[in-house]
Every structure is written in structure tokens, then in C-alpha cells.
Amino acid sequence: MRINKHSNGLLSIYFTAGYPTLDSTVRIAKALEDAGADFLEIGFPYSDPVADGPTIQHASEIALKNGMTLKVLFEQLKDLRKQVSIPVYLMGYVNPVLQYGVENFCKACKEVGVNGTIIPDLPMYEYEELYKNTFEEYGISNIFLVTPQTSEERIRKIDELSTNFIYLLSSNATTGKNLEVKDQAEAYFKRIKDMDLKNPFIIGFGISNHETFRKATTYANGAIVGSAFVKLLAEEDYLENIPAFIKNIKG
């Protein structure tokens, strides 16, 4: 499946690799696909996740304590494509990628069948100047973020650089805050929709239930649930609860 401009009502789930246990990553991905998730973001943990609220901060901390690293993650994802067929994106902060080596990272993504990456603290300028060629060489799509403060000029530039989808932040927030769909937010979603970008856009941050999912997908091609799902992973029998969770959101 490829996310495109005609997609609608797509549900993506974010979870942190190595949480709640080191080897839970692929199991959770498989369970999400079986339950009806349309694509996935697997987070690679970082010690200083400044764009994240308490839930994902906590998951990252536990994942690091469990021994998760990019090296371990790519090892675990070797079998990914035997079990999971929906698109998978890796999401995390830029420093672990730089230390792994950008080329090694893109190469490893390609080898395990990861479709793209979301790296919020990799600026567009640095991407374009330093890394774009490498990403393209390995066919890895880098996903850029748009917030209510992003200028139209920058959104157009992002649209030009994007090869997969654009990640629209629901509001000015770190992860895990509940989206309050106010007139202001709707006006912002509508503004983006009316720009008629060449790439599909998916709304994330603050999507936690059917209502917020429905609201977001009225405007966007899909929506992403992160913290609300990561909270579920704290439950003992989380694997069994995944189908009901997905069903509730999709409605």
C-alpha cells in the first residue's frame, strides 16, 4: 500500500521500539497490522526527546534502559517484512542517526524494508544541503513536519521536497496533549487542505480517540495516534487489547 492523495481515513500508530520490553517491537507491529492499522511509525528512543510529552519520554527512557539502540533495532527489523506488509516509518531524533552514520542508516532502512523516516529535529535546510541525495539513493522518504506557525512559503518548499506524505501537527504542542478541535484548528486544517499540495497529509499529535481521529481525517488523508497507544502498552495484556483499541479509534 502506498499513501496517496486519494487515501482517506488512514490510521497510523506510533510506538517506541524496545518498550515495554526489548523484543516487543516486531510483535507489536504485527498485532497492529492484524488489527487494521494502515501504517506504522516505530520510534527509536533518544535520551533527550524535547518534542515529546511525559508518556513518550517515559517509554523512551524504559526502552533505553532495556538496551534499545539503532543497531539493535535494525537487527530486530530483519524479519519485519516477513510479518508486516503495511508501510513502516522510523521516527526519532537526529543525533542517534548522525552517530550511526546517515548513509548507514538509510542503507539499513532499505535493507529491512522501512519506507521512510520522521526526524523532527533535522531541519529542512540541512536535509536538503547535506542528506537529500543519500536518502534518495536508498529510496528512503523523509517526512517533514508542518505546524500552525509554518509559513505558506515553507509549506510549499516542504511539499516540493517530500516524496511520501507531509506530517501536520494538530496544534502547537509536544506529543500526548489532547487535541481540542477548536475553530482555530479547523481553520488551520482547512488552510492546508485548500493549498492543494501534491503530497497527501496526515495529522498527528493529540489524536487519541474516535472523535479526534474523525475530526482530523475530515481534512487530512489520515491521522496518527501515538501517546494514547503507548499508554496502552503499559498494560500487562496489551497485545490482546490492541484490536479493541484500533476498532475504537476507527469507529
Binding site: Y46, V50, L70, K71, Y100
Partner: peptide, 16 residues
């Protein structure tokens, strides 16, 4: 990279 700038950072091999 730490706090938005490229600099020298005390870190593990994994970039933590």
C-alpha cells in the same frame, strides 16, 4: 546535535 545545534556532545556510541 544537542538542543538544536551541531556542537560537541558527551554521548554514547548510539548517540544518547
Amino acid at each position: 546535535v544537542l538542543h538544536g545545534s551541531r556542537q560537541i556532545v558527551m554521548q554514547t556510541d548510539d548517540g544518547q
